[in-house]
Structure formats: structure tokens, C-alpha cells
Write a protein that binds this DNA or RNA. Sequence first.
DNA 1: ATACTAAGTTAGTAATTGATTACTATCTTT
DNA 2: AAAGATAGTAATCAATTACTAACTTAGTAT
Lengths: 203, 203
Amino acid sequence: MILPKTRLPAEARQLEIVRAVLALAAEDSPDAITTQAIAQRMGLTQGAVFRHFPTREAIWLAVVDWVEQNLGDAIAAAVTEARDPVDGLRRLFEAHVAFIAAHPSVPRLIFNEMQKPADHPVKQRVRGLLDRYRRRVSELLARARAQALVEPELDETAAATLFVGTVQGLVVQTLLAGDPRTLQPVARRLWPLYLRSLGVRQP
Amino acid sequence: MILPKTRLPAEARQLEIVRAVLALAAEDSPDAITTQAIAQRMGLTQGAVFRHFPTREAIWLAVVDWVEQNLGDAIAAAVTEARDPVDGLRRLFEAHVAFIAAHPSVPRLIFNEMQKPADHPVKQRVRGLLDRYRRRVSELLARARAQALVEPELDETAAATLFVGTVQGLVVQTLLAGDPRTLQPVARRLWPLYLRSLGVRQP
DNA sequence: ATACTAAGTTAGTAATTGATTACTATCTTT
DNA sequence: AAAGATAGTAATCAATTACTAACTTAGTAT
């Protein structure tokens, strides 16, 4: 995709590069995305990329920044509107799924970086991101238990892991099927099962 | 790890190559494993690898063969010993987790290949492998429902996806923590939650 | 012992990749 | 309008990669 030939200020171009990476990651493994491919997608030459980022790794860190910002905003907005902790979990789940549906390349980035060596800087960022996410889920679960909305002896840590796993099982199925449209329908069928695992009394 | 310098017959050497890949994949992303690294691990030169495999891709197909064979055997053995479908699911879950604990590189391979382009041969093999696995889970769930061991209105497809997701949530946590020893303890805490999501009456 | 077979070595090649550099074109500021 | 700043170009580099082929040598059958 070659955009109309324009010069962009550095900040805007950096964002364009991040978006190009996200777009390319929807179709191929993130490691396979070359600086050449990024440039080509923007209609620039390869050298131009290095005007805006000192190294390839710096690009990936910027992408993680983008994810952190946008996903963080999306789920924060969802949770604050919740009436109670269980409702918050549902909104969190839905917001998460909606975000992935809108940005299918994001889980691929996470799956990819996750298995790099432990000292890898990008992986550390991703680790922090997911840690905060799980902690958020744990807090909601703890409050749900305090309000007697779920099983009194609920194992919160395990339930938080299952929450993440529920989304991941979903994403894996989507990646296998190669059809992003199945994501949200399947998500709706998965949620009642997760709720029942918490011991929530059904309306 | 340099093994004692010996010549191996082709078949044995091929297996050694597969094992070298599995060992290397435990520490780094599969895509980052070069034929040079494989040879070095066996104490051979890079050219020797191509005595036994025509291309790099052929190595990965052999690795998938190995996984298919060994994981298939492990879970088949587990399920046949089951007293009833729900017991079968538990054994399947435990066998799966035990296999991953013994071969931590296997989920990394799957995560990695999963996001390649759809026409990628290795991905197609992995897809088939996981499809058969999920079908196996679905069948057990259908039989459990027929025997009234679980919620009568259970959504089997969704429950199968959640089964896979439960294992994956687990693996992700392990990959993040970087500590494979937490795998089985956390698995034991996750299982009761999954059972409850099926509507199984607890003993 | 000798000769044959096959595993492993050595020394390459072609292609790709991230990164650098000298230069050009465009925009902004004075 | 002149001058400086900056986005982008084009060419190139060094390193790495999968792969090849001519060779050497270990093991084995005769």
C-alpha cells in the first residue's frame, strides 16, 4: 500500500511506522517483518526508517508502547463503567476481545515476544504489560468474592490465569481458522462457561 | 553440549537433529534456531546437517512428526485408562501438562508456527494436530453429556475451546515466569475451575 | 588387507538483512 | 528571500543465512 507521497513530521512518521508494523504483523510472523517491508508499505525507502528509529528493536519498543497505551485506555474505560466487580470482568473481557478484533496483530506480537530469551528488552515490556493485566483481573475477582458474588473459596490466582487463558484459547482458534470474524461470536459462547467456573449464580 | 565424537547412522542422526532442535527451542524462539546452532549443539559442522535433511523446512516437518507421534501416544494412553468421560478429560489434561513439562519447547513451536501465513506447510501440520486434539476433547464432552455427568445444555464446542485455553493460559504464565516448575502445581489449581465450568457435580 | 559405502568436513556461493553515509529536496524561520 | 533544519534517497557495507559440492575418513563387507 503506497500512500500519497508526502513528507511527514517526525512524530507523525513514527506513528505511521508503528501502524505499518501492526498492519504487516496481521499477515505474517512479526520476526519476519523487515525494515524494507515497513518502508515499502509506507512508500518510502528503507533508509528512511532509520531516520526515525536508531535500531530495529527501537521500533518494536514503540509498538509495545502503542499497545500499552491503547489497550490500557480501552480496558480502563470499560472497567470504570461497571456496576459491580462481576460486571467489570464481563466488560473487561468484552473490551479485550473487541480490541483484539480491531487489532488482530496484537496477540501475535505478544505470542511472539513471549518466547524470546528472558533478558530480551521487548519481552520484558510485554511481561510487565500482561502482569498488570492479570493483577487487574485478580483485584476484580477479590472484590467479587468480598461481595459474595462468586464462590467463597474461589482461587483468585487460578481464576485470573483462566481468564487470560479463555481469551487465549479464543485467539488460538481464530489464528488457526484464519478467520477473525469468528472471534466475537465464539467469545459470547465462552463467557457463560467462565462465569460458571467462578461459581456465579446465573440470572 | 558437545557429545562424544561418533559417527551415527542416518536414522539415529536425524533423531539427534530433532532432539537438538527441541533442546534449542526451549531457550530461544524457533525461528532464531539456525542450522549452524543445531550442528554446534551436536558437535558437528553445519554442512553435516544437510547430509540428513534436504532443507531447513524438512527439519521442522520432522520435528512436527516427532511431536505428533509422542504427544499422540501419551494422550492416547491416558484416555484409554479412563473409567468415564470426565475422568478421561482429567487424564487428558494431566497427560498434556506432563508432556509440556517434559518438553517445554513444544508449545513454543506451536505458538510460533501458528502465526505463519496460511499456506505454510509446517503450519498446516500443526493445525491438523490441534484440530484432532480439540475433536478428541469434544467427543469426550459429548459422551459426558450423554451420561448426564455435566450440565445438560453444555456448549461442547465452547467447552473444548476453553479446555485448550486452560492449558494455554497455563503455558503462557509459565513462559512469562520463565520457571517451568510452576507448570504442574498451577495446573492442579486450574482443573477444579474448569470442571465447575462444565457444571460437574463435585465429589 | 582391500575396496566400498556413507557420515562428516571444508570451503565455498548467493541472497538477505540491519545499519551507515553522503547527498537532495522540502519546509520553517527569520 | 535567505538560511538553517529536517525528511527522504541511493548506494553501499558487514554480517548472517540456507544451501552446495568436492573432499576426507571411519566403519564394514568381502
